[in-house]
């Protein structure tokens, strides 16, 4: 019994240490953001708790940077990326899970092979294609959004995730629906889609997080500041307030509020450990 408790104590100690290391960078940002101009942020020894906490830095970050625009832009991009992924993945997954047709194997392996193609390796021609299709923010906002969204509208992970989900549904349901007079599209839409809702939710959430945090692609295609998504806008803070760490810290924190709320509200999807299938590279 004695030994058991010592072991537990050590486990708790290590986990607390790791947890603190995981959140410390954010706590330190918070501490810096709360310090007013009267306090030295480079003080030795460093002061975690501000002596005179103030929200002035948050206010000035909020007024100087169009965070609301960034929120909205990021939301539009993430929302439509999610919708397209849900529709396109579950459409493509259905025949792969259920039908026999010519070229099925080739199509299956072609989709599988895209997992081996990292976006970073093909981003240059993707950019050239997007330019050629006029899907850039210099044309108009709508085309700008298209260029941000379409290259990520579907991927192999989503297709295979949905395929797994469809394969777990008994075939009899489809046959019964067919006898009742449903066509193939109705079978997909009315019978199968409602049955894979949990998988769709998983796909939606992980696609949303990925899209919301995406930095490389928007920083390549975006030229118009009014079109910036959050990560691009936040990176811009550094240039705007070169050494004003109070404002940079406050702005960074403002930018992560929505995703933290999203995370806490849907925490079970992230930490229940039941989403093994949602593993993404």
């Amino acid at each position: 019994m004695q030994k058991f408790q010592i072991k537990n104590l050590m486990v708790h100690f290590s986990l607390i240490l790791v947890s603190l290391l995981c959140i410390f960078p954010f706590l330190w940002l918070l501490s810096t953001a709360l310090k007013g101009s009267g306090e030295n942020i480079f003080q030795y020894p460093p002061q975690l708790i501000p002596t005179k906490a103030t929200l002035a830095n948050f206010k000035s970050a909020w007024t100087q940077i169009p965070f609301l625009t960034y929120y909205i832009n990021s939301f539009i991009v993430a929302f439509f990326t999610v919708i397209l992924n849900l529709i396109l993945s579950s459409l493509a997954a259905y025949p792969l899970a259920r039908m026999e047709f010519r070229g099925k194997k080739i199509i299956f392996y072609a989709i599988l092979s895209t997992i081996m193609i990292p976006f970073q390796a093909i981003m240059l021609p993707v950019y050239l294609i997007v330019l050629k299709l006029n899907m850039v923010d210099t044309v108009n906002n709508f085309m700008g959004f298209l260029g941000l969204i379409l290259p990520f509208a579907v991927n192999a992970f989503g297709i295979f995730l949905m395929r797994q989900a469809f394969m777990a549904i008994p075939r009899e349901l489809e046959e019964a629906a067919f006898v009742d007079g449903c066509n193939i599209f109705q079978i997909w839409y009315k019978i199968l889609i409602p049955m894979v809702k949990p998988t769709l939710a998983t796909l939606a959430i992980f696609t949303f997080i990925g899209s919301w945090g995406e930095f490389l692609w928007p920083s390549i295609v975006l030229t118009n500041k009014a079109m910036y998504t959050l990560p691009v806008g936040v990176n811009d803070l550094q240039g705007m307030f070169s050494a004003n760490w109070r404002i940079i810290a406050a702005g960074s924190l403002i930018s992560i509020i929505p995703i933290i709320i999203f995370f806490l509200a849907l925490q079970r999807y992230f930490i229940s450990g039941e989403n093994e299938g949602a593993v993404k590279g």
């Binding site: 960078p25 954010f26 945090g213 990560p231 936040v234 990176n235 930018s255 992560i256 933290i260």
Partner: peptide, 10 residues
């Protein structure tokens, strides 16, 4: 879940 940009700034 936090954007890599914010993590890098932190």
């Amino acid at each position: 879940i936090v954007s890599i940009v914010v993590a890098a700034i932190a």
